[in-house]
Amino acid sequence: MSSDVTDPVGPGNGRVVLEARNLVKDFRTNKRAGVFGREYFRAVDDVSLELRAGQVTALVGQSGSGKSTVGRLLAQLVPLTSGEILLNGAPVAATRGRAFIRYTGTVQMTLQDPFASLNPLHRVSYTLGRALRIHGGPMSADDVTERSLALLRKVELGPAELYLHRFPHELSGGERQRISFARALAAEPKVLLADEPVSMLDVTIRKGMLDLLDQLRRTEELAVLYITHDLGSARAYSAETLVMYHGKVVERGPSDQVIHDPAHEYTRRLLAAAPNPRRRLAG
C-alpha cells in the first residue's frame, strides 16, 4: 500500500508565466484604533511565488493561513496592499474594468465549493456560453454550442449533450466541479488558480479530479496553482510545494523534499498530525 507515484509532475523547469513579488494584503477589522482609524489584519505577509507553464505548484496551509487570499490576489479579485504581480514578466495591476477582463483571459480561478460556485438558476449551457462569449468575442449560437460541447469533453463529462441542458442541482459535486473547470478553460487561460478543488468531494471522486487537473496542465501547458490543506495530495500532484502559516510562506521547495525532509517546525507538526494507520503497526 505504499505510494510510489512515479513523478507525475513533469520537469518543473517550465517558463515562468505568473510571478508574485512580496505580496502583502491587509484587511480592515471591526476593531477601532484611535478616533477614526481601524485596526488592520495582515492576511498575506510578504509572499513571493512563481507559476511555471506545464507545472503544478501547491500552496498548502490550514484555514486562516492566507492561502486562499493569495489565490484571490493572483486572480486580481482583490486589490493588493503592496507588492507586485507580473504576467509574462510585465507588471499588471488590473482589478477592474477592461484591463481586468483581459487579465482573466489569461488567469482563471476556480473556487472551493462546487455547490455554491454555479448560479442555481442557470443551465450549464448558459454558464459555459457566457465564459466563451466574454473571451472569444461575438460568435454564433451554433459556435457556442459546438465549443461548449468540446469543453465538456475536455473535462471528461460525457455524453456532453446530456450535460449541456442540466441545472446545477441536477449534477453531483464532482460534476459541478468539472463544470467549473470547463468554465475556466473557456478563456483558454495560461494560468489556472484552483482553490481547494477537491476538499468538498468524496475520496473516490477526488482522485479523478486531481488526475484531470494533472492532465490539463500537460495538454494545455497550464501553469497551475493548487491551493490545498492536504500535504499528501500536494506531494502527489505538484512539483513545488509552499507551506503557509499565519500569512507567511514558512517553507518551500520541491514537493518530495518538503514532505520527506521538512525544514520548518510547522511543516513537521503538520506531517506528524496527519492520520497514519502505519503508526499502529509500528507501535
Binding site: 507515484v5 477526488r206 499528501g232 500532484y237 514532505i259 496527519a274 497514519n276
Partner: peptide, 9 residues
C-alpha cells in the same frame, strides 16, 4: 486512491 493521492496508508 488514498495512496495515489499521497495519504499515508
Amino acid at each position: 486512491s488514498l495512496a495515489d493521492m499521497g495519504a499515508l496508508v
